[in-house]
Simulated assay, not measured.
Amino acid sequence: MFSGEYIWQSPDWPAWRYDLAALATPLAAVSQAQGLLLGRLADVGLGPRDAASLAALTDDVIKTSAIEGEALQPASVRSSLARRLGVDIGALAPVDRHVEGVVDMVLDATGNAEAPLTEERLFGWHAALFPTGLSGLTPITTGGWRDDAQGPMQVVSGPVGRQRVHFQAPPAARLPGDIARFLAWVNAPAPAEPALLRAGLGHLWFVTLHPFDDGNGRLARAVGDLLLARADGSPQRFYSLSAQIQRERSAYYDMLEQTQKQGDLDATAWLAWFLQTLQAALGQAHQTLDTVLHKARFWQQGPAVALNERQVKVLNRLLDGFDGKLTSSKWAAIAKCSADTALRDLNDLVARGLLQRSGAGGRSTSYELANQPSSAAR
């Protein structure tokens, strides 16, 4: 009889179980959503496909770090990805060593999904996440498993002295055997589980092992992305599960804790949540594609008179999905121009029918695209 507190203490570990009949409906719904998205993508040109992939990967890189409370600069992430993928986005942002490391991991996981997952590959991903060998100001081991020298690996929250332990990982001494079993399962030539369920199980299994000093959540999501890329049969990504997990961050951690503390190895509830989240991510991808196609149509139709560089730059920001309201002061900051020049640029675009004013007027005036894409249009 199971008497431990955590799932890895079960005598049956790691013999995962799940109710396939209970998962049949959400599994079919996700498969249908995948087919609808791929069908739309098959009907668009190479340029929009590349732009949709760039948007999804940018979201993935930014949000997988945001889940852990780390903020990456979107412009730096997008530039790094565009440089690697050969997508022209105009001016590139300066190289950020930390951003480059996260991009390296995500692109290797998704672009080389069919390559075996090995210890060396995981070590490479981990080293890329921590290029200085530091997590914040704390030295950590890279290129090797944790050693528990400072005590057991725990996931905790709350202030020092009143911390709550959400999970405790298996002892470091067990890691070589546990990792070997995990990698053998990931690389099995004839998997027994449906491909989408393998992605959910791989994510859960790796984050339960928690084999590194830090970065385990990001690496677990990279493992899940690798298995999703295998399920899709394509190295190009058009949706971001990490972005959807970030939107449901609290539920994500609650579901992990619930699953990791239960007395058996039944992963049905986790997999149901995983499939529901994946379906939502695919729905978001349709909205991203709507935005990409609207942007392509906007520039294909083209304004009757050439725009200046400032106007092109800020319009592209709007077409990519501007965060918040565009005001003349924000225009001046983005375009690096004076307030008077920003107002002339904006008035010119309003006169051409490309922008429209909103707000109460005066300093409260904001501007938006005159013809926004409809997220309901499919």
Rank of each mutant, 00 (worst) to 15 (best):
M1E: 15
G4K: 14
W8S: 11
S10P: 07
A21F: 10
A21D: 15
A29S: 14
V30H: 01
V30E: 07
V30W: 00
A42L: 04
D43P: 00
V44L: 06
P48N: 07
R49Y: 04
L54S: 07
A56C: 04
D60S: 14
D60F: 02
V61T: 07
I62W: 00
T64V: 05
E68T: 03
E68N: 01
G69K: 09
A71K: 04
A71S: 10
Q73I: 11
A75L: 15
S76G: 02
R78H: 09
R78Y: 11
S80Y: 02
I89D: 10
L92N: 12
A93H: 11
R97M: 04
V102E: 05
V103R: 10
D104I: 02
D108L: 09
A109M: 12
T110F: 01
G111E: 06
E114Q: 14
L117E: 02
R121D: 02
R121K: 15
F123N: 05
F123Y: 13
G124K: 07
A127K: 13
P131F: 06
P131E: 10
T132W: 08
G133I: 13
G136E: 14
G136P: 11
T138A: 11
P139L: 04
P139I: 02
A149F: 03
A149D: 13
M153D: 02
G158I: 10
G158S: 12
P159E: 12
R162S: 09
F167N: 04
P171L: 10
G177M: 03
G177N: 14
A180T: 03
R181H: 15
W185V: 13
P191M: 14
E193G: 05
L196V: 00
L201M: 08
H203Q: 14
W205V: 01
T208V: 14
D213M: 08
D214R: 06
R218W: 10
D225K: 01
L226P: 00
L226V: 03
L227K: 05
A229D: 03
R230L: 09
A231R: 00
D232H: 07
G233F: 04
G233W: 07
R237G: 04
Y239F: 13
I245F: 04
Q246M: 10
Q246I: 01
M255D: 05
E257L: 00
T259F: 01
T259I: 00
K261Q: 14
Q262W: 08
G263M: 11
W273T: 03
L278I: 00
A281Q: 04
L282S: 09
D290W: 06
V292R: 00
H294Y: 03
K295R: 12
Q300M: 10
A304S: 15
N316G: 09
R317Y: 09
L318N: 14
G321I: 06
D323P: 08
K325S: 09
T327R: 12
S329V: 09
S329H: 08
A332Y: 05
A333P: 00
I334W: 14
S338W: 08
S338G: 06
A342P: 01
L346Q: 01
D348I: 00
R352H: 08
L354H: 05
L355F: 04
S358F: 09
S358A: 15
A360G: 13
R363Y: 01
T365L: 03
S366W: 14
E368P: 05
Q372R: 15
S374C: 12
A377Y: 09
A377E: 02
R378Q: 03
